[in-house]
Design a protein around this nucleic acid. Structure first.
Lengths: 134, 134, 134, 134
DNA sequence: GTGGTCTAGACCACA
DNA sequence: GTGGTCTAGACCACT
């Protein structure tokens, strides 16, 4: 599991961990039912406090993305196929909703917003990847 | 000047004040060179402590959106014409960048993102002014 | 009397007025025993509050640079010849003392400080003026 | 870290703290990447309210001299090598500029200013380290 | 009237 | 443990 922590972003570390794991799960990058790397190990990898990782794991469990097996560890939850798709759209919509609300207040037309979106997609090199599962 | 404070959002009050005033300035909703509502008055309106408002004003002054006249009050700074436009785009890009980064990781194609954007714009009744059926 | 007020410098206006008048007096740019421009008039010229000018005048009177003739107005005080010279040096020394203290802490050598001084003098075009009264 | 607060100078305490820390950083007296003394501790040392120290730290962070690590503390920022030198010169120039502007208006020749500078440097026992007769 | 500073004390998020 | 936020209330400088 590859995670990147930005200590200067202002975003709490436990949130960065949550967001990245959640995304990897719904993106299917983390195989279902597999055991998660342990709190201690991940903490060591990322050079952060174990309590921070523990907090992230606990909250992801509350959200239903992780399942705890007492005495064993945490596992990726099995999500129904449509659940994944729904979550993906929901996560994206949340972020876009705030962006569009801002754009509307600033009277930035949809066309301009589209241009920015297009540029950002290009920057991420997305067109090169296949997206047949949508 | 209309401001809305959400005491339960977790976002510091002074930041909510900053963000809303900054946006109103770059959106041209606050006329240049005009005196701002006073610290005490806004504090009373919003039912918060004057220091909280003072902090927001001070930070906006540091950012260059407000100008102080000692003993008189704070005024909307005159921004160069291009500065406003740049700030508007910058504010929007910040929000979109995170959204697109998420979309790419979730393998949501640009077309789908566009659809969501379009729907959100419609919901806000945009384009403004050019239609008469509002 | 020519005064320039910088509303954005952070220096209180009454201080800017004091400093400039004081300097003009010891520089001999204001003829001795002449009546000062009235509070109201100067306030109008500079577009500032009359109380601000009044405060500056009062403090200069306390410093001995102005003399009040009740019912008439304020006049430039007659300074003994050596007083002017002493005041000039004192004013300069005060400012230089703080600068050198800083330079020493920052380990900036005297030579570098001299260079900066020389550049600043050139910028003011000083070498062009005669300075035979020293 | 040694700081001295003058409660009667009229200069806000948080500014005195900022100025002294900033100078110590660019003077290299505070080692890079080292953790700063905590807000509470410094507040206790100086017998002032923690918020006062917090304000100074926050502003220095905005200026780029300090870096925050959430939940851990504040650290001296790593400055590019030339940044330090530039800041040193900038700090000194600011003070000298006002002094020379005064000197020019008072028609004090550069030579006289140099003499005062030289005397002040001697008083501070500069040049440092290169002499052994201290 | 304006904003700026400071205090004492509370509560919170983060690691 | 760390810093961040907010309050209520005081005092000050400036115009």
């Amino acid at each position: 599991m590859l995670l990147e922590i930005d200590h200067h972003s202002g975003v709490p570390i436990y949130r960065q961990v949550m967001d990245q794991i959640r995304r990897q799960i719904v993106a299917g990058q983390l195989p279902e039912s597999e055991q998660l790397i342990s709190v201690r190990e991940l903490a060591e990898q990322l050079k952060v406090n174990p309590m921070t990782i523990s907090k992230a794991y606990t909250m992801l469990e509350l959200e239903g993305f992780l399942e705890r097996q007492r005495g064993v560890g945490l596992f990726i939850a099995k999500l129904r196929k449509d659940q994944k798709g729904q979550t993906k759209i929901r996560l994206l919509e949340q972020m876009l909703a705030r962006a569009v609300a801002t754009a509307v207040q600033l009277e930035i037309p949809e066309e301009k917003t589209r241009q920015i979106i297009a540029r950002l997609y290009q920057k991420h090199g997305f067109p090169l990847r296949s997206h047949s599962d949508d």
